[in-house]
Simulated scan of single mutants.
Amino acid sequence: MTYAGIKVLIVEDEGFIALMIEDVLQDLGCEIIASVARLPEACEIAAVVSVDLAVLDVNLAGQSSFPVAQILRDRGVPFIFSTGYGREGLPEEFMESPVLAKPFSAEALQGTVALALEAQR
């Protein structure tokens, strides 16, 4: 499956994981619009950038990415939570959001992206 032209925002504070996500998504044809590691920058970008999908690490250097998720939800942008805590680590309002369990494979990332984009259609 190819996702040519899909614009993605990556919010991930682990450099290696961010690079892996970027590589996999670019191999699928996605365009990485921004890759950020800190909550304030992520909120600023999420509020204004034109994206089709976001991949959000739940824990950004001790801060949760839920404010970013809320901004994206308000804008109608689908997102995926990337977390080692599982769905149990999500607040009630985000329980139905797609979750990518860390550690994950390229195939798991691709499958979760498909899920998030299909749910948006």
Rank of each mutant, 00 (worst) to 15 (best):
A34M: 03
E41T: 15
E41N: 14
A69C: 12
I32W: 02
D13R: 01
G86V: 08
I71A: 11
R38S: 13
E118Q: 05
G62P: 09
A34R: 05
A47K: 05
V24H: 02
V99K: 00
V77R: 02
S105F: 06
L117F: 00
Q26A: 04
P67V: 09
A42H: 02
G76I: 15
A54L: 10
S82Y: 14
F79T: 07
P40T: 07
L53M: 07
I17S: 01
D57A: 08
A18N: 04
E41I: 09
F16L: 15
E12A: 11
E88S: 13
D74K: 12
S35R: 08
M95V: 15
Q26P: 08
E14V: 09
Y3G: 06
L25R: 00
L90W: 09
V24T: 05
F79V: 12
I45Q: 02
L115N: 01
S35F: 09
G29S: 15
S105R: 04
V68S: 03
C43G: 11
L28A: 15
L100W: 07
E31V: 13
P40L: 08
A46T: 04
R75Q: 10
L100C: 01
F16A: 11
V58Q: 02
L19R: 07
R75F: 13
Q26L: 06
V113P: 00
E41M: 13
A119M: 03
A34H: 12
F104A: 00
L19S: 13
S82C: 13
E14G: 01
R121H: 12
D23F: 09
F94W: 10
F81M: 12
T112H: 01
